[in-house]
Design a protein around this nucleic acid. Structure first.
Length: 731
DNA sequence: AGCGACGTATAC
DNA sequence: TATACGTCGCTA
């Protein structure tokens, strides 16, 4: 006998496997003899008492000697395409950037669901003699099955208006037989030539520009189109271009609620609906869709932010629709902003990225101004329509009377709209009847016992509700503090109170409130939207809910009841958010008839948000926001990380925070604030200090933190350190 | 992330 | 004294 090859005599091959758990480092496993494994292969390995799925990250020729006797074997290699090198780089990059354990980022790419056996649906066919006893239900059923063809069991029962047990009875008697239904044929792929769009010259130019970008290579385009300019149809041309090349397209959407009509528009252009990916898929659909994504049989995927990290077979384009939307921020588990990580994925995979918005985020606007992103403008509404004309109503000069919230000028315009048989929308981003209830006798204010926020009066539900934590009490009849009767007054407006006022101003008008807490189900919502679309409502009173989707064809007037709401708090993004929200709400007006009007009730008509909206001057608004950021040091680019130190007593926490600051490595690019600048908070009896770190995007913040914390004194049991990042300010 | 170990508050 | 729940540390 020949001697064995040296390979089998020497120690077995060892690979590092990244596991989808909260671990930053890959674990080493032995490769069973005779098995070939490459980096990227998806494997199953033992971890503690269980089996987990992981990904071979790298070969490990010299594993840690301390592990030699503890190494376990890889159990099996799964029958899945290996993770491509660019996706593995993305996982490493994102983990490092977001300060999240690499395993948690990997977890987002392996959301494959349960790949159980495919369910076979039962079919039923008429094969035997008629039954002895013929009931009406059986007769209807036999009429339907008279053709002798195979029918779906559930469908046949439904068509006959009987329960499936009627079929079971006939099967027992030998009249019918059950056969498995053949699997429905896979839907045809989206057809780039299904319907050619009818573009204006402007849209055609934008589409051509995007098609050029889609030709390949990493580049970011900002499709900068006002509401109603047909952005979606324009970027569909880039999608078509990539489909013709046989590559996959990912279209990210801020939330799933929007996708219903989006899917229809997609089908109108490409003949079929695209594949969906979001958190509410059933496990089986998830598994099916995951397989179609990994093997490339799904050419187009429309998904929420979690769709970004999936292992596409050959991704050729990423579109981020409504790129400014806050829903792209993920704030639990790994903290990231999907729009920015989409740009990163595009850059690593060398594919183009399209960001679309009518009101781009300041970050994206700055990138476009600096030429890092290519701007593709679409400045006019489709079909020669005009943007709504916007006027401010200065509440200091022409406000409504005490306890009223609709200014006379706005009320007058609503009256005209109703006379013209058009609709009006009153927008107020505040649920319930009134944000505050107080006792006229003793001044008692109703606040939440848990979080100190005011309790919001909900007359419809007859409760006072905390909008922070959900705590609620029945609406009291008398003051619990001084026992006075009939002394409680509602302060400030909510949508329910606004409806009351609208009804008293226009007794003949039909009003409807659209507010998330008054909508029990998607069906209710749909039927209410139908009522509006059919013109059975004159005045719509709505919260944030009305800002998105759904066209109201007869809506030509939008009144923003409190345009200043949301500008008050200390949020550095308040102005930007308000601008985006109000732009979107007012954009609801005049979409069909092209003569919309918007009114902004405000106490500060000189505020940049109001001026920009009234003058339709976005550029001036961005200039003021960029200037504000430079002045305050709130970065348009870079990360805001915080190191949270908490302890049971104040001296321990503060002492440790000061020690840490003294030990911080010196890097002029990283600004460290605190603990004096970031005051202490007491949460659940623990004292918390937040040290803020501002770092430009190109600094290795994670390496900096590693060095820093390695130098810090060992944290004892009562002290806790957490690292947190603000994903909104990435890139 | 799971999972067991341990500790403390709480029920019986 | 038994049990529930919270927090910590480990997984190769």
């Amino acid at each position: 006998m020949q001697t064995q090859p040296s390979r089998s005599i020497s120690s077995p091959r060892v690979v590092d496997v990244l596991l989808p758990v909260a671990l930053d480092h890959a674990y080493s496993y032995r490769v069973p003899a005779g098995r070939e494994l490459q980096p990227g292969d998806v494997v199953s390995v033992p971890l503690g008492a269980r089996e987990v799925i992981g990904v071979v990250w790298a070969d490990n020729p010299n594993p840690d000697p301390r592990l030699h006797n503890r190494l376990k074997d890889i159990s099996e290699k799964l029958d899945l395409p290996p993770l491509r090198p660019e996706l593995r780089s993305l996982v490493d990059w994102v983990a490092n950037y977001t300060l999240a354990p690499r395993g948690m980022v990997l977890r987002m790419t392996l959301r494959m669901g349960e790949l159980g056996p495919e369910r076979v649906r039962p079919g039923v066919r008429l094969t035997g003699p008629a039954p002895r006893r013929l009931t009406p239900a059986r007769r209807r059923l036999l009429d339907i099955l008279a053709d002798g063809l195979l029918h779906g069991k559930a469908e046949a029962a439904q068509e006959a208006g009987c329960s499936p047990s009627v079929i079971d009875g006939l099967v027992d008697e030998g009249t019918l037989t059950v056969e498995p239904l053949p699997r429905p044929p896979a839907p045809p792929p989206p057809d780039p030539a299904f319907a050619q769009p009818d573009f204006s010259p402007e849209q055609r130019a934008a589409a051509d520009q995007l098609r050029g970008l889609a030709a390949g290579g990493f580049q970011v385009a900002l499709l900068d189109g006002v509401t109603g300019s047909g952005k979606t149809e324009v970027y569909f041309e880039a999608v078509a271009e990539v489909l013709r090349r046989g590559e996959q397209v990912l279209i990210l959407m801020p939330e799933i609620a929007l996708t219903g009509q989006f899917l229809d528009r997609f089908a109108a252009r490409f003949g079929v609906r695209p594949l969906e990916w979001h958190s509410e898929l059933t496990p089986r659909t998830r598994a099916r869709n995951f397989a179609a994504i990994t093997d490339g049989t799904a050419p187009v995927v429309v998904g929420a932010r979690s769709a970004l990290f999936l292992p596409y077979a050959r991704l050729g384009l990423i579109v981020v629709d409504e790129e400014h939307d806050q829903a792209y921020k993920q704030e639990d588990g790994a903290h990231y902003h999907a729009r920015d990580m989409a740009v990163v994925r595009g850059s690593i995979a060398k594919i183009p990225v399209v960001l679309a918005s009518a009101t781009p985020s300041v970050e994206t606007e700055v990138n476009a101004r600096k030429g890092r992103y290519q701007r593709v403008p679409l400045p006019n509404r489709f079909g020669g329509q005009h943007m709504p004309q916007i006027e401010a109503i200065d509440l200091r000069q022409e406000g409504p009377g005490r306890g009223r919230f609709i200014a006379p000028r706005l009320a007058e315009q609503i009256g005209f709209a109703i006379e013209r048989r058009e609709q009006a929308l009153l927008f107020l981003n505040r649920r319930g009847y009134a944000p505050l209830t107080l006792c006229r006798a003793c001044g008692h204010r109703f606040a939440c016992t848990i979080c100190d926020a005011w309790l919001v009066d909900h007359r419809f539900r007859q409760r006072l509700v905390c909008h922070h934590c959900g705590f609620s009490i029945p609406r009291p009849q008398s003051c619990p503090h001084c026992a006075a009767e009939n002394s409680l007054v509602a302060v400030g407006p909510g949508v329910e109170r606004l409806q009351e006022e609208a009804a008293s101003l226009f007794p003949q008008a039909r009003t409807m409130v659209l507010s998330s807490d008054l909508i029990s189900s998607i069906e209710t919502m749909r039927s209410e939207l139908n009522e509006i679309a059919e013109g059975r409502v004159d005045i719509i009173i709505g919260t944030q809910l009305v800002a998105k989707g759904h066209n109201f064809p007869r809506l030509n007037l939008v009144g923003v009841v409190d345009a200043d709401l949301g500008l008050g708090n200390g949020d550095p993004r308040a102005a930007e958010r308000t601008f985006q929200l109000l732009n979107q709400v007012i954009g609801r007006a005049g979409r069909e008839q092209g003569r919309g009007v918007g009114f902004l009730q405000t106490h500060q008509p000189e505020h940049p948000v109001m001026k920009a909206l009234v003058a339709c001057d976005r550029a001036a608004f961005y200039a003021s926001e960029i200037e504000m950021r430079e002045r305050t040091g709130y970065p348009p680019f870079g990360r805001l990380a915080s190191l949270i130190i908490s302890a049971g007593d104040r001296p321990t926490a503060e002492g440790f925070a000061r020690k840490l600051v003294a030990l911080a490595p010196i890097d002029e690019r990283i600004k460290l604030l605190g603990p004096a600048e970031a005051p202490l908070a007491v949460i659940k009896g623990r004292y918390r200090f937040r040290l803020l770190l501002k770092a430009p995007r190109n600094v290795d913040l994670s390496g900096y933190l590693r060095h820093w914390l390695a130098a810090a004194p060992k944290v004892s049991g009562t002290l806790k350190l957490e690292v947190d990042v603000d994903p909104q300010s990435f890139l």
